[in-house]
């Protein structure tokens, strides 16, 4: 564990904005896509009357 404290972790050596800006947008896009895919699948299954 090379981070002295959580605040040091978030500061990311002063690059916090850039590092977390990259990771946050990546997480948002990937999670967003997956959630939308799964919800369309669920809705379609319910529509087809199959068990979810």
């Amino acid at each position: 564990m090379q981070w002295g404290s959580w605040s040091e972790f978030w500061a990311m050596g002063g690059y916090g904005f850039y590092v977390w800006g990259s990771f946050a947008v990546t997480l948002l896009c990937m999670a967003g896509e997956m959630v939308s895919l799964i919800s369309t699948e669920r809705a379609a299954r319910k529509h087809d009357g199959e068990k979810v």
Binding site: M12, G13, G14, Y15, Y18, V19, S22, F23, T26
Partner: peptide, 10 residues
């Protein structure tokens, strides 16, 4: 420094 960690997703 720490900014290279973006490599892990870039």
């Amino acid at each position: 420094g720490e900014s290279y960690r973006i490599i892990f997703i870039h």
